[in-house]
Write a protein that binds this DNA or RNA. Structure first.
Lengths: 214, 214
DNA sequence: ATGGTGAGTAAGTATTCACTCACTAGTGAA
DNA sequence: TTCACTAGTGAGTGAATACTTACTCACCAT
């Protein structure tokens, strides 16, 4: 792996990697392995191999396998993104847009179920950071949505339901969808767009035919 | 099953258990361990200890740890229950009753998240029977519900939504709830009954205030 | 009694696990 | 050049791991 350099002349690409880079590559390798096979299902040897280093080096960067896992959860827990778009829709009181945004964000991302798998594994395996990880990943949307629903109820636009429960229900629909298709691998019969439209309409309008309107 | 004493000195409690009983006790012990810690997280030693036998005996009954796991999934996959009640509601076209029944069945059972954990672990860990297991556990309700919704649409009682998607959405709401509270351990603010009522009403009537009716 | 059978186990085996240690080599500053 | 420092590793360590072997004992029909 070294390119062999005794000579002073430029070594393209230093033969040594900085500590931070190495740490990042270890985290990246470990993330996909932990997401694929869980904490107990992944060995430090596999992680080291995936990162292209010796197992010993892994332990130079992280005192234990567990610490590496914790570092991953802590790192991945923080991100926002999407906030602005959502908040704009929020202010405009554009129900359909807001719900569509949330749904399609979650559903489109299905290409990469890593985070979801990581979350589920950590919850099932009972890692101490799992709740925190969950909070960061879901609480954001949850609280935002619940707040929006509450306001729309005050507007008189929504029925007087429990906003927290309603938010949970909507996120549940989306999560369940991802569970079935991204994790269990069931085939999807419809396009993403059609799915999102249908789910949003279902949630906003309910199932019962309200009036023979029009 | 024999207690039977030929020997002079009574030995407390039959010294031997029948093969089937032992097999059952191994399966029972293994089920809770696999549900708690997953396949890779559980060792054959732990299972044997929980069943109160030697590790060697486990391998007399099951050729491998994997085979034991498979036997569990295959066994737990088959059960019906609840069918009659649901089918009655189905025939009566009693929407609220049917949905309430489904929801409360799932939610009340929260006391024992074993099956759900087993299901999720098997899905995440990629066991070959996970899909089958899932089919048996969920497909029943899913198909039943989808069929019912389809009929009610034909009746003109429900809006013309996609019945399969609608069924999925409702089950998603319930599953998500269990995920949050049974697996992640988040506290519940409402009673089971209130929750079920709210979820059902939400799903049936939707969120948007339809008309200033009555 | 006796011999066949199935329940049961103690004590392995080979391998893999997370983790260490003793050590080499590249690098930048003095 | 030297030297301190850090990136990096091969070759371990003891403890588990899944699974085996060779054996003992209880029971029962002959």
């Amino acid at each position: 792996m070294n390119k062999a350099r005794t000579s002073p002349r430029h070594r393209h690409q230093s033969s040594r990697t900085s500590g931070h880079e190495r740490q990042a590559s270890l985290i990246s390798a470990a993330t996909s392995l932990f997401a694929a096979k869980g904490f107990t299902g992944t060995t430090t040897k596999q992680i080291a191999k995936a990162a292209g280093v010796s197992e010993a080096l892994l332990f130079k960067h992280f005192p234990s396998k567990h610490a590496l896992y914790t570092a991953i959860l802590a790192e991945k827990a923080q991100y926002s993104e999407l906030r602005e778009a959502v908040e704009e829709a929020t202010n405009k009181r554009d129900d359909e847009r807001l719900f569509t945004l949330l749904a399609s964000y979650r559903i489109k991302k299905c290409a990469d179920p890593t985070m979801l798998r990581l979350l589920l594994f950590s919850a099932l395996e009972g890692h101490e950071l799992s709740t925190m990880f969950f909070q960061q990943q879901y609480r954001v949307f949850h609280d935002l949505l619940a707040g929006y629903i509450r306001r729309r109820i005050e507007d008189g636009a929504f029925r007087p339901v429990d906003p927290v429960l309603a938010a949970k229900a909507f996120l549940g629909i989306i999560l369940h969808h991802r569970l079935l298709h991204d994790i269990l691998g069931l085939p999807m019969r419809l396009s993403h767009e059609a799915l999102v439209v249908e789910y949003v309409s279902l949630f906003l309008s309910g199932l019962i035919r309200q009036s023979p309107d029009s």
